[in-house]
Simulated assay, not measured.
Amino acid sequence: MTREHRISLLKMLPGLAISAFFLWLTFRGFHLSDFAALRLAAPLWLVGVLAFSVAGYTTRCYRSWLMVRSVKAKFGATARVFMTSLAANNILPLRIGDVMRIFTYAGDLNATPSTILSTVILEKLLDVLTLAVLFATTLHFGGAVSPHMRLLAKAGIGISGGGLLVMVLGARILEPWVKRLFAGTENARLAKLEHWILLALECVRQNGVLGSLWLVICSFVAWVFEGLLYVSAARLVGLHTDAVGPWQAVAQANLSFLIPSSPGGIGPFEAACKDALMRHGATPAASGLFGLMIHVYLLVAITGVGGAMFLAHRMKRSPREPLLEEIDELPAQLP
């Protein structure tokens, strides 16, 4: 392992500490009897959990393929690369899954690393927009929400939605404005921010207005499936909450990935899910256990499927470079 990677691994320690803190915050005061109370109240809802999981991630794979179809990437290869990157992000530090997707597998999609980086950035923007809309909508229901939080959620929708709309309708016009805004900057972080914004604009411009709007629709559909997955899981374990609770849990738990933590977002996810469900009538113990259960399920399912697709593809490759050596050759961070 290179010195640069060793230094990067040391940077993980604050994230691990953050995860540990949120896990303590979520499960302090829990008793073993609380865990023993977890049971399958309506096993038939397991069908819904599995069906909506498949539908949601198939939609995400389709959205990813839409962004690279112009370079004649195949849907099967795109789905494999996408799921492999998610699996790697769940178990490896430093967003290695995204880095592998950009540098290791760009050739599998007939694309350049810059093209794949642009799709990754646009995916994040689309997901944040969708979750912001869902979060602000669900905040109008339930209790213990301050007016300031409602205002913040509305501002988040306005900024993310307005920004994405401007990008969709005026990507070509925005490019020279962005270049002028960052002209002459010597700050490395600002230069990287400019690079990422221009890549996202280029991806939007290549998809066109209608194509970009279709990407927005696909993003909302994918997260609707995710919400139905949470609803099914709540019915599966007999969670006592109102109809909005699982939907706010989806938005809040997934937005928690913006908080730096360990791979897989362990800790902030459970705490955010618990907080959301408690505001909709669920008990603290049931809310925390549901967050843990749904997170374990997602981590195991996504990592299992992505890992299986990775291994199946790797067995066909010849020659096969050892995985650790392949990872060691990757850049320590996104360009």
Rank of each mutant, 00 (worst) to 15 (best):
F257W: 02
F257I: 09
F257M: 13
L258W: 01
L258H: 10
L258D: 00
L258V: 12
I259A: 11
I259L: 15
P260C: 09
P260S: 10
P260N: 04
P260M: 10
S261T: 09
S261E: 10
S261R: 14
S262G: 13
P263M: 15
P263T: 11
P263N: 11
P263V: 15
G264T: 08
G264D: 08
G264E: 10
G265V: 11
G265F: 14
I266L: 14
I266Y: 07
G267S: 11
G267K: 13
G267F: 12
P268Q: 11
F269M: 02
F269R: 11
E270A: 07
E270R: 08
E270H: 14
E270T: 03
A271V: 13
A271N: 14
A271L: 15
A271I: 09
A271T: 05
A272Q: 10
A272R: 09
C273G: 13
C273N: 14
C273Q: 14
K274E: 12
K274S: 12
K274I: 15
K274W: 10
K274T: 10
K274V: 15
A276F: 09
L277H: 04
L277Y: 08
L277V: 07
M278P: 06
M278R: 07
R279C: 10
R279N: 10
H280Q: 05
H280V: 12
H280F: 12
G281V: 02
G281L: 12
G281Q: 07
A282C: 05
A282Y: 01
T283F: 05
T283P: 03
T283S: 14
T283Y: 06
P284W: 07
A285F: 00
A285M: 06
A286C: 03
S287I: 07
S287E: 01
G288Y: 00
G288L: 04
L289P: 05
L289C: 04
L289F: 03
F290K: 04
F290E: 06
G291C: 03
L292R: 00
M293V: 08
M293E: 01
M293S: 05
I294G: 05
I294K: 06
H295E: 14
H295S: 09
H295R: 06
V296P: 01
V296C: 09
Y297F: 15
L298F: 05
L299I: 15
V300Y: 05
V300K: 03
A301C: 08
A301E: 01
T303G: 07
T303A: 11
T303S: 13
G304A: 00
G304P: 03
V305F: 09
V305Q: 04
G306F: 06
G306M: 08
G307S: 09
G307H: 00
G307R: 00
A308F: 03
L311Y: 02
L311P: 00
L311C: 03
L311T: 04
A312W: 11
A312G: 10
A312T: 05
H313G: 07
H313Q: 10
H313T: 01
R314G: 01
M315N: 00
K316L: 14
K316F: 04
K316R: 11
K316Q: 10
R317Q: 12
R317H: 01
P319M: 00
P319L: 03
P319C: 01
R320C: 00
R320E: 06
